[in-house]
Design a protein around this nucleic acid. Sequence first.
DNA 1: CTTTCTGCAAACGATTTGCAGCAGC
DNA 2: GCTGCTGCAAATCGTTTGCAGAAAG
Lengths: 144, 144
Amino acid sequence: MVADLHDTIHGRLRGVNQRLTANRKAIIEVLSSAPRPLTIPEILASGRDLAQSSVYRNLVVLEQAGLVHRIVTNDEHSRFELAEDLTGHHHHLICANCGMVEDVPASAGLEKSVHSATAQIARSTGFRTQHHRVDLVGLCRDCG
Amino acid sequence: MVADLHDTIHGRLRGVNQRLTANRKAIIEVLSSAPRPLTIPEILASGRDLAQSSVYRNLVVLEQAGLVHRIVTNDEHSRFELAEDLTGHHHHLICANCGMVEDVPASAGLEKSVHSATAQIARSTGFRTQHHRVDLVGLCRDCG
DNA sequence: CTTTCTGCAAACGATTTGCAGCAGC
DNA sequence: GCTGCTGCAAATCGTTTGCAGAAAG
């Protein structure tokens, strides 16, 4: 984990009056070294000897601190990844067969279209968009 | 409920070897008369005297038949709506504060961008997209 | 030193399931 | 009439919570 990431984490936790603990560091490290969002069983299986309840509690805290983002799919477990401002904006490929979730970078053209659609919706409905989510659902290479 | 919708429902249920029952008709009617995806408590509260377990079971069947689509949010309950080929393609506005979900029609420009991004991803990753989901998360008029 | 976090185990609550009787076709 | 659906109540399982001791600041 690079130093400035460490500082960012510490700062954001302080921002919501939370401490930087060994467990929280460990969770962030596990997430930051994964190429895709992880479920809680996957985090528990990462060999860091974390208690299940602590992982659940800490993910709530990290989410409130804006460090971690929760992705809910039709799968049995929620998935977690580092917040986009730490990793870069991306979208998700979701396999309808095996539940796999993979990150893909957002293309500039698509982003532009989404933003103009967002602006249009704000005008017509008063909805104030904070962020968006684009998921492509289909079959991954293994299941296709 | 119009006649051809009724026939479509009957046909798709037959397609997965399922019967068209009074409960299933009732659920479809409730969903088709709502302007937004409904939770199971909302469906149960619709005054049609449905048993909770039957609603859960039938929504699974209707989803497999391709008649109903399940939306999972961070909210405590899943939400259900009629399949898009019965209602028209649309996206969702999700209120980060109160959990409300509202339908918005998909703009042509945005769709075009999503499709070209999809094609690009198929070429580079082998992922075969079946459909996509665009959610705008922010504050609804009431919570903003 | 004080406050917050941790781990354990028990509680919670949305969803699923077993079973006996009823309904679609 | 046979097969599959329904409703009830009990079971399941991901997630949350109470509590006493350990760690952050």
